[in-house]
Simulated scan of single mutants.
Amino acid sequence: MFTKRNNIFSTIILFLLGSTMLFAQTEQQNSDVMSTIQQKYQEFGQYMQSGDTDGLVANLYTDDATIYPPNGGVVSTSKGISKFVSGMLSSGMVIQLVPKEVEMLGDAIYDYGVANVSNMEGEKLGIQRYMVIWKKVDGEWRIY
């Protein structure tokens, strides 16, 4: 009887330790993923500031990416996305993407956050929610 209780107790302890280690690994992985996405959004901002929309699309979007603007419609293809972003820049809009939740799911990352929209003078125009799916292409995370 005493041995049976010890075995049950040992099993419970091992389960709890394993769960704690798995949780710690997941937390570290999520932290690493968040850092990666924040770095990608810094690159995004640099491309936007320089007005290099072709570079933005070529380096941060997949070839088959699609975006869904807040006022409706669908924009796909590299050329279409570059044209859309150019239009935003020429209208004086500046977008800062701030991820709130980022999680890796298999070979993809989902990213939910807010987009702070302002004009070139820094006047806040609004806030939009966004969701991005990232895919790894040739070892680099890109917006899908």
Rank of each mutant, 00 (worst) to 15 (best):
M88F: 08
G18R: 09
F84H: 13
A115Y: 00
A108P: 02
N59I: 11
L17V: 12
I109V: 07
N59E: 05
Q28A: 14
R142H: 09
R5K: 14
Q96C: 06
Y47A: 05
V85I: 15
V57C: 08
N30L: 04
S118Y: 00
K83P: 06
D138G: 09
T36D: 10
E101S: 14
K100S: 10
N119V: 02
S76F: 06
S78R: 14
K136F: 03
R142P: 07
T62W: 02
G72F: 02
Q46H: 15
F15V: 12
S78M: 12
K124V: 03
M48G: 08
V75G: 04
D111P: 09
K124G: 05
D63P: 10
M120Y: 12
M48Y: 07
Q128A: 11
I95C: 09
P69A: 01
V114D: 12
G55D: 01
K79H: 12
P69C: 00
Y68R: 00
L89F: 05
F9P: 00
Q29L: 09
M93E: 10
L125Q: 14
L17R: 00
G55P: 05
Y41F: 12
T77V: 02
V137M: 04
T3Y: 14
N119Q: 08
Q29T: 06
E103Y: 07
W134K: 03
S31N: 15
L97Q: 12
L17D: 05
D54N: 15
N71T: 00
E123T: 11
Q46A: 14
L97G: 04
G106R: 03
